[in-house]
Amino acid sequence: MTSLLDSPQSVVEALRGDRLRRPLVDHSVAAGLRAVLEDGIYGIVGTALLTTPIVVRAATLARPSGTIDLRSSSPSRLRGVLVHQLLRLHCVGATINDALDDATRAWRAQDPSNDLLAMLDRLDDDERARLSTDVTAHWVTFSRALGDVPSRWMPRTSVRASQSLAGGGVLLRDVVDLMIGTVGDDVASVALFDVTTAPLGVGAERVMRYHALVQTLRTSTKPLRTATFSSATGELLVRDVDDEMLTRSVDEVIACVGDRWIER
């Protein structure tokens, strides 16, 4: 299923979908994907011993090699991190009084020595006011679309994953903003959700596929669906995870490793 909603009524409902139409949980696909990845990487790196691993992240896949993405500028990253902190607070039912201030406090408690946080501290009053307005606008769009996340769906935020390939020479790292459902069900129920403060582009689909791939490798279980929401435009992109999507992501990861290998 692919849907692009300009004004989604409830993102959470779209993520969970109809329980009766969910496929049985698939434990069989992960080993094959890992084998294809290992073979593909071996074809690039060969027997070379990498002292520093090639690290692949969602952000690496979001833009093609050798291009510049304005979303990676510091103000955009700052806004993205702050909206992500608000998502974390929202999912545990915390009340947001001042979007910028609350997000900053939450962030500082987790990562007090972050360079971006230091940059935030150096903003003058005008820049800070602009950022506050910006973050609040994104937050209002996002929180209205998301709605309340029922706790029985086991929502967890900022879920990290790290997969080591080629004997530790390649690391796939990933952070999913919000994950709901559990791998213990008889039917597929895990939905992966990302929020971005930029408009959705081609890169967003690559990131969605990457989340699905890393989650499959991590849990050896295929997730139900993967989604991205843009708080800039209110668009929601939802895709059911299937074998074709995972295979495509494997190809993208191998191509990305190839680019990084050439850059070395």
Partner: peptide, 22 residues
Amino acid sequence: ASAPVMGVVRAEAVNWATQLCE
């Protein structure tokens, strides 16, 4: 701790407990 810090503590604890529960 302030309310936002408490919120992040709860979010982290939920993540931990969910992993262990699974």
